[in-house]
C-alpha cells in the first residue's frame, strides 16, 4: 500500500505539470515588459534597480521630444493609409479566393502569392524590394514604405476576411437578388454588413502590423522617413535609458490597444 501513495503523488504532479508550465510561460512573457514599465518611472536618466523613487518625468520628456513625436506621427500616418488600404485590398483578395467565379486552381495560386510574405524570409523580401526600387529608380521615402506596408498586411487582412467570408451563407445575397437587388446592392446591403465586425478587426490588426513593422521599412525608408520602430532601434543601439523605457511603454500601449480591440471584435459575443 505504501508504494501507492508516492505514485499517486507523482501522477497528480504530472497532472499539474502543464498548468505550472502555463503560469511560467505567462511570467516569462510578461515579466520583461513589467520590468521596462517599472524602470520607465525612474527619476534619473539611468535607472538603478531598485528605483529610489517613482516619477513620470520621462513620459514628459518623451512627449516633449520632437524626434520621437515626429516618428510617432509618421507611424500613425503610414498606418492610417496602410490599414484601410490593406483592408480594402484584403477584401478583394478574400472575395477572389472564396466567392469569385475564378477556378479553384487559380484561387489556390492567388492565395499562395498573397501568402508569400508568410513563407519567404522577410530580410530576403525586404532586400529584393529595396533592390527593385533601386532599379526602378523610385528611390526611398513615404511612397515605397506605404507600398511595402500594404504588401506586408495583405496576407493578414486577406485570410482574416476570407475566413469570415466563408462563414457567410451565400444564399443570403442570392435571396436579395431574387428579390430584385443587383450585385452592387446585394453586396452593399447584405454581404458588407455581415462582414463589418471582421472588417473592423482587419483595420485594427493591419494598423498594429503597420505600426510595428520594422525590417521592410528599414530597407525602404532612406534618411527622410523615421518611423517609431526605426527611431527606437536607433536609440537602443546607443544605450538603454529611462527615456527609451517610457517611449517603449507608449509603443506597447498603442499596439496592445489596437490588437486588443481587434481581437474583441473578431470574437462575436
Amino acid at each position: 500500500m505504501s508504494s501507492v501513495r508516492p505514485r499517486r503523488w507523482l501522477r497528480r504532479g504530472a497532472g499539474r505539470f502543464p498548468a505550472v508550465v502555463v503560469v511560467a510561460t505567462l511570467m516569462f512573457l510578461y515579466v520583461p515588459v513589467i520590468v521596462v514599465a517599472y524602470l520607465s518611472l525612474s527619476p534619473t536618466g539611468q535607472p538603478t534597480i531598485p528605483l529610489e523613487s517613482l516619477s513620470l518625468r520621462w513620459y514628459g520628456e518623451v512627449a516633449a521630444d520632437r524626434r520621437f513625436v515626429r516618428a510617432l506621427l509618421t507611424s500613425f500616418g503610414i498606418a492610417a493609409v496602410a490599414a484601410p488600404g490593406g483592408t480594402v485590398l484584403g477584401l478583394a483578395g478574400a472575395y477572389a479566393v472564396t466567392r469569385s467565379a475564378l477556378s479553384g486552381r487559380i484561387k489556390g495560386v492567388i492565395a499562395t502569392v498573397i501568402a508569400l510574405p508568410l513563407f519567404v524570409p522577410t530580410v530576403v523580401l525586404a532586400f529584393g524590394i529595396g533592390l527593385t526600387g533601386n532599379y526602378l529608380d523610385v528611390g526611398y521615402g513615404y511612397g515605397p514604405v506605404v507600398l511595402g506596408h500594404l504588401f506586408w498586411v495583405l496576407p493578414f487582412t486577406t485570410f482574416l476576411l476570407s475566413a469570415r467570408y466563408a462563414e457567410i451563407d451565400e444564399q443570403l445575397s442570392a435571396a436579395a437578388m431574387d428579390l430584385g437587388a443587383d450585385t452592387r446592392t446585394a453586396f452593399l446591403t447584405v454581404t458588407l454588413p455581415l462582414l463589418r465586425p471582421a472588417l473592423a478587426a482587419s483595420l485594427l490588426f493591419a494598423f498594429a502590423l503597420s505600426f510595428n513593422e520594422f525590417l521592410i521599412t528599414f530597407f525602404l525608408a532612406g534618411s527622410g522617413v523615421t518611423t517609431v520602430p526605426l527611431e527606437i532601434f536607433g536609440k537602443v543601439r546607443v544605450g538603454a535609458t529611462a527615456f527609451l523605457n517610457a517611449a517603449s511603454v507608449l509603443v506597447l500601449l498603442v499596439s496592445a490597444a489596437a490588437a486588443g480591440v481587434g481581437s474583441a471584435l473578431r470574437e462575436p459575443a
Binding site: 485590398l89 478583394a92 477572389a96 508569400l116 533592390l131 527593385t132 511595402g148 504588401f151
Partner: peptide
C-alpha cells in the same frame, strides 16, 4: 478585375523582387 488589385501588389512586391 477585383482580384487584380491584391494580385498586382503581391506580384510587384513579392514575385518581381525575387
Amino acid at each position: 478585375v477585383v482580384a487584380s488589385g491584391p494580385i498586382g501588389l503581391a506580384v510587384l512586391l513579392g514575385i518581381v523582387p525575387i
